[in-house]
């Protein structure tokens, strides 16, 4: 998967990330799928990021706005919906990877900084209820999809 050349990139990227094999962990991807069925303005690109890690970096570069949808642990209870910027998330400043399998969104943003691409995404997150193995969202989380979609639409200026 290669990103288009910087000049051909749409200014707004909506990126749904997460692991769809672990129920609510995949909320971001489920939302991205939903948005792909919506008639969006020309300047918006929707991408399912899955678990691609640093491969997502080139897709986030050279955009005016990046909106990431992901599972968020905010300790305010399952089903809480968050809108966060990178100042408001744990960026793992002192972390040391014990395995390459620990690469996560903050790591990718940190590498982006180092590469000269400071990315300051808006993160729309949902606190998961169930992270066990399964392709489906919990019913309670699934029910939140319209709300999250509305929030993303607001974020791209499509709704008031």
């Amino acid at each position: 998967m290669s990103a288009p050349a910087p000049t051909e990139r749409k200014p707004i990227l909506i990126l749904g990330v997460g692991n769809i094999l672990l129920k609510d962990e995949g909320i971001g991807v489920h939302i991205a799928e939903r948005l792909q069925a919506v008639d969006l303005p020309d300047e918006v690109e929707v991408l399912e990021g899955g678990v691609l890690g640093v491969d997502l970096l080139e897709h986030m570069e050279h955009r005016e706005k990046v909106i990431i949808i992901d599972a968020v642990q905010g300790d305010m209870g399952p089903g809480t919906i968050y809108r966060l910027t990178r100042k408001e998330i744990e960026m793992g400043e002192n972390r040391c990877l014990s395995s390459l399998h620990e690469i996560d969104l903050p790591y990718v943003l940190n590498v982006g900084d180092f590469m000269g691409h400071y990315i300051d995404p808006v993160i729309i997150g949902v606190e998961p209820k169930d992270l066990s193995v399964g392709l489906d969202l919990s019913p309670e989380i699934e029910a939140l999809i319209p709300k999250v979609v509305d929030l993303v639409m607001k974020e791209i200026g499509q709704m008031n």
Binding site: V72, D104, L105
Partner: peptide, 20 residues
């Protein structure tokens, strides 16, 4: 599982917009 973790403590009300 890799979730984004919201920062704890601090001026939560101002810094975190828990819109819903």
């Amino acid at each position: 599982v890799h979730v984004v973790k919201r920062k704890k403590g601090g001026k939560r009300e101002e810094k975190v917009v828990n819109i819903d």
